[in-house]
C-alpha cells in the first residue's frame, strides 16, 4: 500500500515537474497567456485534441508549434488548403515496381503531434479524413488499417473571421476536439517584450525539447490514476445536462463532452498534484471543453451572449450534487 502510495506520489511529482518544464518552454514563445498554455498541456495529458480559434496573427500556429517542439517526438504540420486531398492526410498506397506490390506511404497524420493549420480552409472531405483518424486513432487505406502511434494529438487552428473560401467545421466534428482555446490579444507589456525578443530571431528555433514521447505516455498513465468521485461525476453530468435544457442554447453538449470534461479534469487535477478531481476543475474547464460544442439560440445571439458567456452562467447556476445525508 505504502509502496504504491509512494510511487504514486513520485509519479505526480514527475508529472508536475515535466509539465512545468513544458509550460515554461512554451512560454518562452507565447508570452502572457498562461491560461492558454495550461489548457494546451492539460489537453495533451488528457489525450485530447486541441482547437485553437482566433483571429490571424495572435500566435495560434506558434502555440501549436511550440507545444510540438517542446516534446521530443514526431511532429507534422499540415497547411490546410482547398486543394488538399484526404490522401495527403492519411497516406496512399502506391505500386512499388521493385517489390511488385502496393506500398503504403503514410500521410501527414502519422506523427505524435499533428499541427493542422487553418483547418477550415480544406474541403469537408479532407477535414473528415483527419477527424476520423483523430477519433479512432487509426487510418484505414485500401482495407488495411494502420494504428497511429501514441501519444497522438492534433492541434488545429482556425480563423473565425475570414469566411470567404472556408468550410467551417460542423458541430459533429468540433465535438471531436477536447477543448477549444482562443489566444486573444496579448497584454501591452507582453507585446512589448515580444517585440524585443522576436524581432531578431525566431524563438522557436531556440526551443529545445524538454521531454519525450515515452515520458508523455507515462504521464498520461499517471493521469489515468486520478480518482473521480461519484459526486464529481454527478456534477459533470449535471453541468452537461444543463446545457441541453438551457433556453439560451439551441443545441446542448453531447455525452462525449461529459467524457472529455472528466478526462480533462483528471489531467488538470494531476497538474495540480492532486490525486482526485474537484468540482473546481470542472468549473475551470467548462468553457474550453463545452463552449465549442453548443449552439446558442437566436435570443442569446440577439442579447449579445456568446457560448462562453452562457456556459459561464450555467456553471454559476448549476448546484453541486446534494450529499445523501447531511
Amino acid at each position: 500500500m505504502s509502496t504504491t502510495a509512494t510511487s504514486s506520489a513520485m509519479d505526480f511529482d514527475e508529472l508536475t515537474e515535466v509539465a512545468g518544464r513544458v509550460r515554461r518552454a512554451i512560454e518562452t514563445v507565447i508570452e502572457g497567456k498562461p491560461d492558454v498554455v495550461e489548457t494546451a498541456v492539460t489537453v495533451l495529458l488528457a489525450e485530447g485534441h486541441l482547437l485553437i480559434e482566433d483571429v490571424p496573427g495572435v500566435g495560434k500556429t506558434m502555440l501549436a508549434k511550440a507545444l510540438a517542439r517542446s516534446i521530443d517526438c514526431t511532429v507534422r504540420r499540415i497547411q490546410f488548403t482547398p486543394d488538399l486531398l484526404p490522401s495527403d492526410i492519411t497516406g496512399v498506397s502506391v505500386f512499388n515496381q521493385e517489390v511488385r506490390d502496393f506500398e503504403f506511404k503514410p500521410g501527414a497524420v502519422f506523427a505524435n503531434i499533428v499541427v493542422g493549420d487553418e483547418i477550415n480552409r480544406a474541403s469537408p472531405k479532407t477535414q473528415a479524413a483527419l477527424l476520423e483518424s483523430m477519433e479512432e486513432r487509426q487510418v484505414t487505406v485500401d482495407t488495411t488499417t494502420y494504428q497511429l502511434e501514441a501519444p497522438f494529438m492534433v492541434i488545429a487552428t482556425q480563423n473565425p473571421i475570414e469566411m470567404e473560401g472556408t468550410y467551417p467545421l460542423p458541430e459533429a466534428q468540433r465535438d471531436r476536439f477536447m477543448a477549444r482555446v482562443s489566444m486573444g490579444y496579448p497584454e501591452p507589456a507582453a507585446e512589448l517584450r515580444m517585440l524585443d525578443g522576436h524581432s531578431a530571431t525566431d524563438p522557436l528555433n531556440n526551443l529545445q525539447p524538454v521531454t519525450d514521447s515515452q515520458q508523455v505516455l507515462r504521464l498520461v498513465k499517471t493521469v489515468h490514476s486520478v480518482h473521480v468521485s461519484e459526486s464529481v461525476k454527478e456534477y459533470a453530468v449535471a453541468l452537461v445536462g444543463a446545457t441541453r435544457r438551457s433556453q439560451e442554447l439551441r443545441l446542448g453538449a453531447s455525452p462525449r463532452a461529459t467524457l472529455h470534461l472528466i478526462r480533462a479534469a483528471r489531467a488538470a487535477a494531476a497538474l495540480d498534484s492532486r490525486e482526485f478531481v474537484l468540482p473546481d476543475d470542472l468549473q475551470e474547464l467548462a468553457v474550453p471543453v463545452l463552449a465549442h460544442r453548443v449552439l446558442p439560440a437566436a435570443e442569446a445571439h440577439l442579447g449579445g451572449r456568446g457560448a462562453s458567456d452562457i456556459i459561464t452562467g450555467l456553471v454559476a447556476s448549476v448546484p453541486l450534487p446534494r450529499t445523501r445525508r447531511d
Binding site: L278, V315, S317, P319, L320, D326
Partner: peptide
C-alpha cells in the same frame, strides 16, 4: 451552510467547497 443561511449570508449552492 444552514448557519450561513440562517444569518442571511449568501451561501451559493453552485459554489465548490473551495470557493
Amino acid at each position: 451552510r444552514d448557519t450561513s443561511r440562517d444569518l442571511g449570508l449568501d451561501w451559493s449552492d453552485s459554489s465548490t467547497p473551495r470557493q
